[in-house]
Design a protein around this nucleic acid. Sequence first.
DNA 1: ATCCCGAGGG
DNA 2: CCCTCTGGAT
Length: 232
Amino acid sequence: MIPSQALLRRTLQILARLKRAYPKADCELDHANPLQLLMATILSAQCTDIRVNQVTPALFARCRTASDFATIPQSELEKIIRSTGFFRTKARSIRACAAHLITLHQGEVPRTMKALHGLPGVGRKTANVVLGNAFNLAEGVVVDTHVGRLARRMGLTRQQDPVKVETALIRLVPRRDWTLLSHLLIWHGRRRCSARKPDCASCEIRNLCPRIGVPQPIAQPFKTNIRPRRRR
DNA sequence: ATCCCGAGGG
DNA sequence: CCCTCTGGAT
C-alpha cells in the first residue's frame, strides 16, 4: 500500500514536532563501543534501559572482548545480569553470541543485517539498534513495544506485527531519519505517551494525533444487522 | 501460541 | 493484584 499524501505530510509534521520537543533524543543504553551496545541491547528485552544501565558497568568491567563474554561462566554472568529479568536466557544468548562473533567474525561485531540477525539472542530489533546506533548503517527502523504502540496510536499504521510496522514506517520517513525516528518515538512513549496512562493533555503533538486532533476515517460497516453486544 | 523472568507503577 | 518494560527462541 502506498501511503496517502495526507498521511505522509502528517508524519513529517509529527517528526518535526518531536525533534523540537526532544532535541537530545538518542540511544539511552550506556555503551562505549559496538560490542557493548550489542550486549546491552540483548539485555534490554522486556526491561527498561535504566535497569540495563545498572548492570552493565559491572558486566563491562568483567568482560571487555568477545572472548571475555564467551568464556565467562554461565553462573557468574547470571549473577551480574539477574535483575534485568530472563537472566538464564540472556546469559546463554550473550555467551553463545560472543562465541559466534569469534568463530564467524574474528571477534568483531558485523555491520550488516544479514550477519547480525540470527546470532544467538539477536532478532531484527536488536540488529537494527546496533546497525543504526553503533555504525550509522541503518537498514531499517527499530520497532520495539514503544514504537509499535505509538505508531498505531498516531494512526501511522494499523499493523500489529513489528516487521509490518517497520515496513509502514520506512515508507513514511526518509532513510536519514530512520534511527532518529525510533529514538523520538521511544522518548515520547516514555515521557508522554505511556502504555498505561498517556498524558494527552500536555502532549506536544496532540493536534496531529487521531486521539485528539485528527478525525479518523470512519470504517463504515455494513449497516445491516448490527446486534447489541452480548454481555459477559 | 507459549515460555523465559525480575522489578516497578497504578 | 494486573500490566508493562527498547524481544527472541521454540
